[in-house]
Amino acid sequence: MDEFFIKPKIKFGVDSLDYLKNLVAKRYFIVTDSSMVQLKLIDKVLEKLPKDSKVEIFSEVTPNPTVEIVESGLKRLIQFDPECVIALGGGSPIDACKGMLYFEKKVVKECSGGTELNRHFIAIPTTSGTGSEVTSYSVISSGENKIALANEEMLPNIAILNPEFMKSLPPKIIADTGMDVLTHSLEAYISLKGNPFTSALAIEAIKLVKENLLDHYKNPLELSQREKIQYASCLAGIAFNNSSLGINHSVAHTIGAKFHISHGRANAIVMPYIIQVNKNAWQDYANISKELGYKFSNVSEGKDCFLRFVEELKKEMKIEQSLNQLEIDFSDFKLRIPSLIKDIKKDICTEYNPNDLSDEDYVKLLLKIYFGTDEI
């Protein structure tokens, strides 16, 4: 039996933070990062909470949050025992917060003989990329590996989309997170687990990216584009939460962890090569091109139209075309290929990819991604 699942409730718009004024909880645990504190963005949340409430702030989350950070936050969470937990930030604070709540539930359940623990969970994204505020996924780093958790218990109760938080984003972050949105949308659309519900959401997200991302990149203070990219991120999150993803994410997770590349940029670098290798999805890529208004006469041309769109978008936002442009040493890369393939194959995103690649296919793919050519 197939299923399409929607959670959380979504509050959006410039006045969406006013939702916090009506909360009745007395104890709040906020998971965020140091930049949210330094930029005083956390103050926008604090000033909306009930005046007599007690607040504990855990601001130690770093990019690509580690198991150690989740453990540290978990201890603070248990000690403070809040009624409401708020995750504020990009994908890293939200993913870290999900991990804390997930493991807290497991610990409490095991120690109490089955007692369920439910805290009101609010996610407030400050970037438009991961869609983590509406997904049951969390990615945590352990050494050079990324661990992808998936459990519906990690879904927030409320997601608050407020475009004011994105005013201060630098262009590079807008580029990286925007390409992450495109990757989520694209992989949700071509996934073997996709369905009419996820396809409709994914297509709308892709259209919003095409129409608004470059303008948002060039004019971060413009409200309209900022808001629409935020919607695209959320739509894409709902889509892939139901359809899963594919090897674009599996490869990006793996090379991102091994070579310390931001997740969105890793997705963007590998995307053209994944489009070429996913031959079973060429019809889907052509369908997307048609929805975007491109003209072509056959499936291969339709796929190429979408590929050119991706490559032009990357060029305009100054995103590298290959790993060697990041000055990654080839000798080191070559030695890591067997472990890279192993990690890609066991990543939870690989299962529903349209094409099933052999080890030889993966070797060729990784070499193409490194050298920036499709001729290998």
Rank of each mutant, 00 (worst) to 15 (best):
V24T: 13
V24N: 11
K26V: 05
Y28H: 08
Y28C: 01
Y28D: 05
V31A: 04
D33N: 13
D33R: 00
S34A: 12
S34I: 14
S35C: 03
M36V: 11
V37G: 09
L39G: 10
L39H: 13
L39T: 15
L41K: 15
I42V: 14
D43I: 02
D43A: 04
D43M: 01
V45L: 12
V45A: 07
L46V: 11
E47A: 00
K48L: 01
P50V: 04
S53Q: 10
E56I: 00
I57R: 00
I57K: 00
F58Q: 05
S59Q: 09
S59Y: 13
E60L: 09
V61E: 11
V61S: 05
V61I: 14
V61G: 12
T62V: 14
P63S: 13
N64E: 15
P65W: 07
P65C: 06
E68V: 07
E68R: 10
I69C: 12
I69S: 08
V70K: 07
V70L: 08
V70W: 02
E71C: 09
S72L: 13
G73I: 12
L74Q: 12
K75S: 13
Q79M: 05
F80L: 05
F80W: 06
D81G: 01
P82D: 03
P82F: 02
P82V: 01
C84E: 11
I86G: 04
A87Q: 10
G90W: 13
G90K: 13
S92L: 04
S92I: 10
D95H: 06
A96F: 11
C97M: 01
K98Q: 06
K98I: 03
G99C: 10
M100Q: 05
M100V: 12
F103D: 10
F103A: 01
K105L: 00
E110T: 03
S112D: 10
S112W: 09
S112Y: 11
G113H: 05
G114D: 06
G114I: 03
T115F: 07
T115D: 02
T115M: 03
E116S: 14
L117S: 14
N118Q: 08
H120Y: 13
F121W: 07
F121K: 11
A123W: 07
A123V: 07
I124L: 08
T126P: 03
S128W: 08
S128T: 07
T130D: 02
G131H: 06
G131N: 06
S132P: 05
S132A: 13
S132L: 03
E133K: 02
T135V: 04
S136M: 08
S136R: 06
Y137I: 10
Y137A: 11
S138W: 03
S138N: 03
V139M: 07
V139E: 03
S141D: 04
G143E: 14
E144D: 15
E144Y: 09
E144M: 09
E144A: 10
N145C: 05
N145Q: 15
K146S: 09
K146L: 10
K146R: 14
I147Q: 09
I147F: 06
A150Y: 05
A150F: 04
E152W: 03
E152M: 04
E152A: 09
M154V: 00
L155S: 09
L155P: 06
P156M: 06
P156Y: 07
P156K: 08
I158F: 00
A159Q: 02
A159K: 00
N162G: 04
N162A: 04
P163T: 07
E164N: 15
E164F: 14
F165C: 02
